[in-house]
Amino acid sequence: MERGSKSPNDKQNIVEIRNLYKSYHRGSLVVPVLYDITFDIAAGEFLALMGPSGSGKTTLLNLLAGIDKADKGSIRVGDMDITTLSETELAHWRANHVGFIFQFYNLIPVLKAIENVELPLHLTSLSKRERREHSETALRMVGLEHRMDHYPKELSGGEQQRVAIARAIVTDPTILVADEPTGDLDRVSAEEILAMMERLNAEMGKTIIMVTHDPRAAQHAKILRHLEKGYLNDTLKGAHDDSQNPL
């Protein structure tokens, strides 16, 4: 967490997406998913990407987090155009710059909470002791230091998602991406997780990009973007502009 020096009111863009296209192939059929997406995310932003199911939110998030390849366009994160990177370079880049939070927590079932948090640090040059210290700090930040030696199946959904958040922040990444982080949680746990993400953004200046189709979850973000059938709509909260939709 030593590198967490980005201040929340730094207006510099941390993500710049230009003319991004993505389609999937189903057999001989080409299924277009994203058309000509262009937008920026400022450093220290907490952005919620909304839209109905199937609108391409996950696809867009995967592209800017470097786990999927675009057909066309550029994605700059920090000072790197990640569309130019090879598979191996991309893996290395992700390890250093992106923290991931998923709907189903995706913890490794055979690893204890602390070991799950420590996992990404094995790709760094940190010593065993440093890894341990960093992981403990991260778990303490999500309020789970007393659950350190528990396996995922011994934790509630909300607790598992907090472990996942600790794993996402332990490497002090440039951006945090979250795909429906509360989609599998009850209301109370969901609020806890969202509050925690708000705090990470406000107190530590983390740039967060969160995908959700739940308006209540989106309330916690500072900016809202809407994705409808592959097009990015207006930035106004809850705005709909179907005139851009050709389908």
């Binding site: 893996a91 992700r94 991931f100 790709l123």
Partner: peptide, 8 residues
């Protein structure tokens, strides 16, 4: 998830 985290 391991690949996501950067394992090869």
């Amino acid at each position: 998830i391991m690949k996501t985290l950067g394992f090869g």
